[in-house]
Amino acid sequence: MSMHFSVLASGSTGNAIFVETDQNSFLVDAGLSGKQMEALFQNIGRKIQDLSGILVTHEHSDHIKGIGILARKYGLPVYANEKTWKAMDPLIGNVPLEQKFEFGMEKVQSFGSLDIESFGVSHDAAEPMFYTFHHEGRKLVLVTDTGYVSDRMKGIISNANTYVFESNHDVDMLRMCRYPWSIKRRILSDVGHVSNEDAAIAMSEVFGDQTKSIYLAHLSKDNNMKDLARMSVSQTLESKGIKVGEQFDLLDTDPKKPTQLVAV
């Protein structure tokens, strides 16, 4: 069995991604309520109680809202780095000690034939990190919630088969919106979120001959649109000689509806 995944939800209202192999399955973040998470799992024909664990990227509420309830209800292991655990603990309620596991920064943990690699991102959280999944020669990269993509990150995530990649905002829309300047400055900063254009430049630098699909993720509901994100990213990639629809597929995610469960 190959590695399959679904972006269950992606956006400022909540984030969750499901990844499975024949031996294990993981949920990356649970930024929606327990009931919403259960409905999303029903939608893709999977059961939360069958999960091998929950992997946490950082402690912001749109990534951890449902973690406590799911961990307690289903007895699931939860993995996060030490600083994230300290920041997250008061926010998710009591999780039994035997269900708490540490997943260090820039480490690899193996679960059967699945190797999961963590890497740091630049975001205003305690110690934010995302994950690369390796299974039988296939590579899935999840990277959102970062103000920029560093050379170190590019080295770790390069030439994946599939990317779930942040394309958070259109810079002009953000500058024109009604957000207070302090919030705009935070989003535009090196510890905020990447714009459509900056995301596309980073994509062009990690794109490889194995890359067949890129999912645009964590779009701002106020300062982006799916069509605009796709157009901006496509134009930048095409300007660098990367043909959308020929060399790879550029796909959407949604804050409320899961993507199809597909092989990497």
Results as ranks from 00 to 15, higher is better:
M88N: 02
R46K: 15
F111Y: 10
A39E: 10
A126H: 06
S52W: 03
V108T: 13
S110T: 15
V143A: 02
A126M: 11
Y131P: 03
D151V: 06
M37V: 09
D115P: 01
I156S: 03
V143L: 07
I116E: 02
I48L: 13
F111C: 04
P90I: 13
F101S: 07
Q109G: 00
S33F: 01
V143I: 10
G66T: 03
Y131M: 10
I69W: 12
L142S: 04
L114Y: 07
R46S: 10
F111P: 02
K154G: 04
F41W: 02
T146Q: 04
D151H: 06
K107I: 08
E102A: 10
M153S: 06
Q109H: 09
S61E: 07
K73M: 10
G93H: 08
K100S: 09
A125M: 00
I48S: 07
G147E: 00
A87F: 06
L70A: 11
M37K: 01
Q49H: 12
G104D: 11
I64Y: 03
S110K: 13
E136S: 15
L91K: 14
D62T: 13
L70W: 01
G147L: 00
L51G: 06
V121C: 03
A87N: 03
L140M: 12
A87T: 05
P96L: 14
L51C: 13
G66P: 10
L91S: 14
G75T: 09
I156L: 07
L114S: 08
F133E: 01
D145G: 07
N94L: 10
G53I: 09
A125Y: 00
S122M: 05
S122E: 09
G53F: 06
G104I: 01
K47M: 09
H123T: 06
S122Y: 06
Q99L: 15
E127R: 12
L76C: 14
G112L: 06
S122V: 04
E136M: 14
S52G: 14
D62W: 07
I67F: 05
V143M: 02
K47Q: 12
L97I: 04
L76V: 15
Q49D: 14
P77R: 13
F119A: 03
I64E: 04
I92Y: 05
F119H: 07
D89Y: 11
F101R: 14
Y74F: 15
N43Q: 14
N43C: 10
A80Y: 00
D50I: 05
E102G: 11
R46Q: 13
D115V: 09
Y79K: 05
L76Y: 05
I92D: 03
N81Y: 02
V143Y: 00
T84I: 14
V95G: 01
F133I: 07
L76N: 10
A39Q: 11
V149K: 02
T132D: 08
P128G: 09
D62Q: 08
A71M: 08
D89L: 14
K83Y: 09
V141Y: 11
F130E: 02
I116L: 05
P96Y: 10
M88L: 15
E102R: 10
V141S: 06
E98Y: 12
